[in-house]
Write a protein that binds this DNA or RNA. Structure first.
Length: 1087
RNA sequence: GGGCCUGUGGCGGAAUGGCAGACGCAGCGGACUUAAAAUCCGCGACCGGGUCAUACCGGUGUGUGGGUUCAAGUCCCACCAGGCCCACCA
């Protein structure tokens, strides 16, 4: 069906114009007409509906391509220019893939639960259900105006009960699963890997005694049962419940969490930026609270290892890998003096255990509350209590503002298992409860933080690792001539000597002996570490000047020489002679790179580390720890379990109820969804303690097990229950939406097996191209991977990971203006005075143009609707893709858009008669144009594949420029043949689908261009007949030759040598070498 | 403080180790026009020589300084500047 062109509804004319504007000039008005007309047709014909396997119209012979945009939060503010950047990119790719013969899954929907929508509702005083639906309608309208080729039949929002029914179902899958570390191939070798299995399998293993009837040893949040039941059969119902719950991947556990009083809710780690909430920037406190939590830490190793297999930006992989934060070390048990209890610590430096001179525990550590409660240490209790109270009330921002170490002695001593010495236990808030065991062995000599703390509180510092400087000192004291050792004149020389040693590996090896003569003593009042060398202990110098003699000069001459050398290496120390002794004072802890240095002062009856390199010492000490059961090797992660409860209204309710004893039960699958109750008052309560909003819905909250849908096998139907009043966070719905798009209407399963297998495929990861901002690098992108892995382990999805290839579009910024004092001026107050020069209009002061984020205060925010009105959607799409590399941060510059509009106008004018609206078709095409066409085709396809849209568009512009030039000056003459217009329409179709469709239909086609085939370039048409060769002498271009393409090296060289200019320049020189690059250049090296 | 990334005309940017500045904006010149808009064509870094002025010739130019190479915007090292991420993680 061909649709005749309507003239623009409002022909744009200016008051002074005497000549009529052509009726079919490609103006914004005509663009609007073309665009909305085809958008309507695509909608009506469902052009972009992609059937699933088994549905009518599905073509199983085509390969699949699943391309997903991160779906937006439909905020009340509408789209900003950043949204269409990624969406246009994926749209181009999808349209290209369709033309390449792929079945393309390209869906869109709404991430509509969560804080942003809820905060907006609170601001406006309108219920979030209404504001969210309104915002969605607005977003959909705006997106459709861009002509994106989404399959809108698959649209859904995370707030749809038909969707969150399955979000709740997935929660129950995690609730009903545990991490089984056996039965997965190679799991033992890898140590910590395993896979999720149903709880029923755990039960079977417990019953068979394959797993001890004790709480999950990996569950740090649960105290072990004491005394432990002798067997599963002997365990009470209560004990059994505790054991099973400790294995669940979704558990209700007390954890130190991020509490935001202003938002009245708990937040996940990735929702807290610099101690403030990501949404609203409110202060966040640490607070121990009982919350639904996912045991994502059980997947730490797999989440880390899986990164290798993904085609993701390296920076994002690095971010996830740092967020997971794997570190190898050991756990060590420190017994408490006079008590049965002990403190367990994690350390990456078990080799320094002999240097542990005190211990630090976090204020939230269980030991602290026990001490406060016990009468035994009463002298310390008041100060301790005051400190703990003060720390708890400090927000994270306050903690960050003062980096000054604080702490209080607990009154308790521990025993260093290596030295057997008693060491004090301190509470310090630089020890974090969330990492390791919330306790540390402090080694001030080799940890900067411990050093700072020890100096401040006068705690002992014991060197156990010597860097080269100290080793060198020892050797110096032993072998240097007596007059050097005892003469203060040599202090400066000594400093240089040490510097030289530390910067010279050979020196370090040579001077690596002589440890025996060094003893070290601590001088806390001096704020440092001193190495004291007793001259009496140094053996008599047998051969004075022995150092120098090794190099054939006298020692004095040698020392004089090195005195002139630049100081290098460790520079924060002083060396001096005093009372006939030599002192070296280190002003800081020696950390090295974690593996530099040699162990000293580290031996007891059973083990000696002295003289070992750090790496060897680690192995040795871990063996000893194992042997003596004092500790063990251990891998630790920075990744914390994922806090999943929110105390807000606008989220998915948990499918969980509690009985009268507070025990939790799942709602059975058949009773899902647990629908979010209507609530008139949904404003959060600003409070110090969580007050879940759903608790206000008392009718909904208090029900019976039967009414709530709990299986009667678990609880009698008439038993009264309370529903879980927390809701899920915004990240719940977005953690699995990629799967749902494969089969969005399925009511019987979250995704059908066939749809999952077809669209996600049977490779390692499913989505072929995922597009979205890098701000989700560690939140959404990690959570989605975790859920997907669990679903995979339980056999619900075929792929291990959700996203095979990931791309982050860059941030679109804006120009802003800066005064000399670095303050910013709003864009509308600035005037351009010349090339790159700007002044502030009010003062006339010059300002500098800089790039900044768009913000209301700078008046540089751009509304997409305005741009489409002024230029049309095709121009907008082109502009954003032409700005620069897709991944780069780029400044928006409205002034530049006109260039792309002019391009489309030229394209239009070279194909369409502006007076009649008819196509201009040349009967015979020129070879220049035809060659350029092939060049464009050859460039555009690969550029789309590698998402280099800016250069692809440049190739299209070049083609149109050549065609325009060919058309000559008379506007009516045609330069393109029907066939060329046909191919032109097809290669611009992914970028500017509307104008392409218009040309396509004018050519007489009745089917949409979307499924036309992609043209093929003929290599013979691209190859030039003659090429220009640069002739260089010593790398500088001296002449250019036009030669037939494909000329071989020898002929080329001869041609270059025959050139008059080259001959003249080589006069009197000998040609030493000639490099010939075929088709490019000849470089002659001559002297 | 640590990690990663980026530095190219007035601006956005292009360039598998092989003629730096494709393409677009802004600017300048010209054609068309009574004039303007629109359109089309052309120019376009810096220094020196040369010339009435062009042409032309030589040299220097991709943040700075070194290095590798016949050849470096591109690879290596150090530094400077900007951006992003992490930030008491034992």
């Amino acid at each position: 069906m061909s649709i005749p062109i309507e003239p623009p509804s409002t022909p744009s004319t200016t008051p002074h114009s005497t000549t009529e504007q052509p009726r079919f000039r490609y103006t914004a008005a005509l663009a609007d007409d073309i665009e909305t007309r085809w958008q309507q047709e695509w909608d009506q014909r469902q052009t972009f509906r992609q059937p699933n396997p088994g549905e009518t119209g599905f073509d199983g012979t085509k390969p699949k391509f699943y391309c997903l945009d991160m779906f937006p939060y439909p905020s009340g503010a509408g789209l900003h220019v950043g949204h269409p950047e990624g969406y246009t990119a994926t749209d181009i790719l999808c349209r290209y893939k369709r033309m390449q013969g792929f079945n393309v899954l390209h869906p869109m929907g709404w991430d509509a639960f969560g804080l942003p929508a809820e905060q907006y509702a609170i601001q406006t005083g309108i219920h979030p259900a209404i504001t969210t639906r309104t915002a969605i309608d607005n977003f959909r309208r705006q997106l459709k105006r861009f002509g994106f080729s989404y399959d809108w039949s698959r649209e859904f929002g995370t707030i749809d009960p038909t969707y969150y029914k399955w979000t709740q179902w997935i929660f129950l899958q995690l609730y009903g699963a545990w991490m089984c570390e056996e039965g997965i191939e190679g799991s033992r070798d890898r140590g910590i890997e395993g896979r999720a299995r149903p709880i029923s399998e755990l039960l079977a293993k417990l019953e068979r005694g394959e797993i001890a009837a004790q709480v999950n040893p990996k569950a740090a949040e649960v105290k072990p049962l004491s005394p432990a039941p002798t067997s599963w059969a002997a365990a009470t119902a209560e004990e059994r419940r505790t054991i099973i719950d400790s294995y669940r991947l979704a558990y209700l556990g007390e954890q130190t969490v991020n509490w935001c009083p202003r938002l009245g809710t708990v937040l996940a780690n990735d929702e807290v930026i610099d101690g403030r909430s990501e949404r609203g920037g409110h202060p966040v406190l640490r607070k121990p609270l009982k919350q639904w939590t996912f045991r994502i830490t059980a997947y730490a190793e797999r989440l880390l290892g899986g990164l290798k297999k993904l085609d993701w930006p390296e920076s994002t992989k690095a971010m996830q890998s740092e967020w997971i934060g794997r570190s190898e070390g050991a756990e060590i048990e420190f017994e408490l003096e006079g008590e049965k209890a002990s403190i367990r610590v994690f350390t990456t430096r078990p080799d320094t255990v002999f240097g542990a001179t005190y211990m630090g525990v976090a204020p939230e550590h269980p030991l602290v509350s026990r001490i406060i409660a016990s009468p035994a240490a009463e002298t310390c209790v008041p100060a301790l209590r005051a400190y703990v109270d003060r720390t708890k009330s400090r927000s994270d921002i306050e903690r960050m503002e003062s980096k000054e170490k604080t702490g209080v002695f607990t009154g308790v001593y521990a025993i260093n298992p290596a030295t057997r010495q008693r060491i004090p236990v301190w509470v310090a808030d630089y020890v974090l409860m969330g990492y390791g065991h919330g306790a540390i062995m402090a080694v001030p000599a080799h940890d900067e933080r411990d050093f700072e703390f020890a100096v401040k509180f006068g705690l002992p510092i014991r060197d156990v690792v010597y860097p080269r400087v100290q080793l060198a000192m020892a050797h110096f004291a032993k072998y240097a001539p007596a007059e050097v050792r005892t003469n203060e004149r040599w202090t400066g020389v000594l400093a240089d000597f040490l510097g030289w040693i530390t910067s010279n590996n050979a020196g370090a090896e040579r001077f690596g002996e002589g440890l025996g003569v060094v003893t070290s003593r601590r001088h806390p009042p001096m704020g440092g570490t001193a190495v004291q060398i007793h001259s009496a202990e140094a053996p008599p110098i047998e051969r004075p000047g022995s150092i120098g003699e090794r190099r054939g000069v006298s020692s004095i001459q040698w020392l004089d020489a090195i005195a002139e050398m630049k100081f290098a290496g460790i520079d924060d120390f002083t060396a001096r002679f005093q009372h006939g002794r030599l002192f070296v004072t280190l002003g800081e802890a020696f950390v090295g790179a974690g593996n530099e240095g040699t162990l000293v002062n580290s031996a007891n009856d059973e083990v000696s580390l002295d003289g070992l390199h750090v790496d060897a010492a680690k192995t040795t000490i871990v063996d000893w720890l194992d042997r003596t059961k004092v500790g063990n090797k251990r891998v630790n992660y920075r990744l914390r379990d994922w806090t999943f409860s929110r105390q807000r209204y606008w989220g998915e309710p948990f499918p969980i109820v509690f009985d009268a004893h507070g025990n939790h039960y799942p709602v059975s699958d058949s009773a899902l969804p647990v629908v979010l109750p209507e609530l008139a008052d949904y404003a959060p309560v600003e409070s110090e303690d969580p007050m879940p909003l759903l608790a206000k819905a008392t009718m909904w909250m208090n029900t019976t097990a039967g009414a709530a849908g709990v299986s009667s096998a678990l609880l009698a139907p008439e038993a009264p229950v309370r529903r879980e009043s927390n809701t899920m966070p915004g990240s719940a719905g977005s953690s699995w939406y990629a799967i749902r798009y494969c089969d969005p209407k399925n009511d019987g399963r979250f995704v059908s097996k066939t749809a999952d297998r077809y669209w996600m495929g049977d490779g390692y990861a499913g989505v072929d191209q995922y597009m979205g901002g890098s701000e989700h690098a560690v939140g959404h992108l990690l959570y989605s991977r975790f859920w997907h892995m669990v679903l995979h382990d339980l056999g619900h999805v075929s792929t291990m990971e959700p996203f095979e290839r990931l791309f982050h579009q860059g941030l679109i910024t804006s120009f802003a203006y800066q005064r000399k004092d670095k303050t910013l001026v709003a864009t509308d107050l600035v005037e351009e005075t010349g090339e790159g020069k700007f002044v502030e209009r009010a003062t006339g002061q010059p300002v500098t143009q800089i790039v900044a984020k768009m913000s209301k205060s700078l008046k540089n925010v751009v509304n997409p609707d305005d741009i489409i009105n002024e230029f049309g959607a095709d121009t907008f799409r082109l502009y954003e893709m032409y700005m620069g590399p897709l991944e780069a941060t780029k400044p928006w510059n409205t002034r530049d858009i006109v260039g792309l509009q002019r391009f489309l106008q030229r394209l239009w004018r070279v194909t369409v008669n502006e007076q009649t609206g008819e196509l201009k078709i040349a009967t015979a095409g020129s070879e220049t144009v035809e060659r350029q066409m092939h060049k464009a085709i050859a460039k555009v396809g690969p550029d789309i594949e590698r998402m280099a849209f800016n250069t692809g568009i440049a190739a299209l512009i070049e083609f149109v420029n050549v065609a325009t030039k060919e058309a000559g000056e008379s506007a009516g003459s045609a330069s393109l043949t029907r066939d060329q217009i046909d191919r032109l329409a097809r290669i611009i179709a992914p970028f500017t689908p509307h104008i392409a469709e218009e040309l396509w239909r004018k050519l007489g086609n009745t089917e949409p261009i979307a499924y036309a085939s992609w043209p093929v370039a003929d290599p013979a048409m691209i190859a030039e007949e003659t090429v220009e060769i640069a002739v260089q002498i010593a790398g500088k271009v001296r002449a250019k030759l036009n030669v037939p393409a494909g000329m071989d090296e020898k002929t080329l060289e001869a041609a270059a040598m025959a050139d008059e200019k080259i001959k003249a320049m080589l006069e009197g020189k000998t040609v030493k070498k000639v490099i010939v690059v075929k088709g490019k250049l000849v470089n002659i090296v001559a002297v």
